[in-house]
Design a protein around this nucleic acid. Structure first.
Length: 291
DNA sequence: CGCCAGGCCTTAC
DNA sequence: GTAAGGCATGGC
């Protein structure tokens, strides 16, 4: 067992906000209730590979417990990205500065590739709490368990494990037409058609094209996987909220073509455009009445 | 009942 | 290359 405390600078992390802003379907509430349906619990856990990680925050102290070493926890939260430098890097206009101030400590998480890939394939035309419920059902049905302190925790299935699921069984979970996407993409990953460790080393355009070979992965899902699991901090996923925000706040960037808007936003915000996206995404959801 | 949700695939120009 | 239509299911 491993446990400890990481002391962080003021404003460096808002763990609860980072977990609950809608970016992850991999983390869970320690209370056992689903993420996005329980906002009172402040402890979060996930199974990552063979490890169990439990995190909570008190003031500027980040507490961890489980089987994962501290160095790896830094990676999970992208703690090598300094918020002070990020703020300087992203300061382009009053809107992003306001969002950065209001949501100080919101960080992009670094989740595992396969769970992120499948959960964002499922996310198409679906509401966020429902996506999380679906991902949990998949973990319960096909994921193996990891034992920790006399308890067993489900983890999201590996490609090998999920390949055991038939398309019909997936459909029975309620994922509709996405069932065939999940089935086919699982086979493609299992066959090595797309190798995440190779995608990491590609340029952004190559990496996006590579992921789009997978069934059910278009521009937006590819950008999410790149940002949330493969270290592409400049990837700018253009979702329904992002489009509304752009229409309201950055009308000069409006365009019917996905790639054009995403490219403009990457150029506008630079190296950490994906982080800017997350601030604006959350800003949009918090201010939905004016969009 | 109708409308929409972290879009993607197919088909037609 | 770009634009339109269909698509499963659940929540409101």
């Amino acid at each position: 067992m491993v446990e400890g405390v990481i002391e962080l600078p003021e404003g460096e992390l808002d763990l609860k906000l980072s977990m609950e802003c809608g970016q992850t379907f991999v983390w869970n509430k320690w209370s056992g209730k689903p993420l996005y349906e329980d906002t009172s619990c402040r402890k979060f856990y996930k199974v990552h590979g063979e490890d169990l990680v439990l995190l909570w925050q008190e003031g500027t102290d980040l507490y961890y417990r489980g089987t994962m070493e501290e160095e790896e926890i830094y990676n999970l939260l992208n703690l090598d990205v300094s918020m002070e430098e990020l703020e300087e890097e992203l300061s382009r206009d009053e809107i992003i500065e306001e969002a950065f101030e209001d949501f100080r400590g919101l960080r992009i998480l670094n989740d595992e590739f396969f769970p992120t890939l499948i959960s964002y394939i499922i996310s198409a035309q679906m509401q966020i709490p429902r996506i999380k419920r679906m991902v949990n059902r998949i973990a319960e049905k096909w994921g193996s368990t990891v034992a920790y302190e006399n308890q067993e925790f489900n983890r999201f299935p590996t490609p090998e494990e999920l390949a055991q699921a038939s398309e019909e069984e997936l459909r029975d979970l309620g994922m509709g037409y996405r069932a065939s996407y999940v089935k086919e993409t699982t086979e493609q990953v299992l066959d090595g058609e797309v190798d995440p460790s190779k995608v990491r080393d590609m340029s952004y355009p190559e990496a996006q094209e590579e992921l789009k070979k997978l069934t059910g992965v278009g521009d937006k899902v590819a950008d999410c996987v790149l940002l949330f699991s493969l270290g592409f901090h400049d990837s700018y996923p253009l979702d329904t909220w992002g489009k509304k925000v752009i229409g309201e706040v950055y009308p000069e960037f409006e365009d019917s073509r996905y790639w054009k808007v995403a490219e403009d936003m990457r150029e506008y915000f630079g190296e950490y455009a994906g982080w800017a996206h997350e601030y604006l995404f959350h800003w949009g959801r918090e201010n939905r009445e004016i969009l």
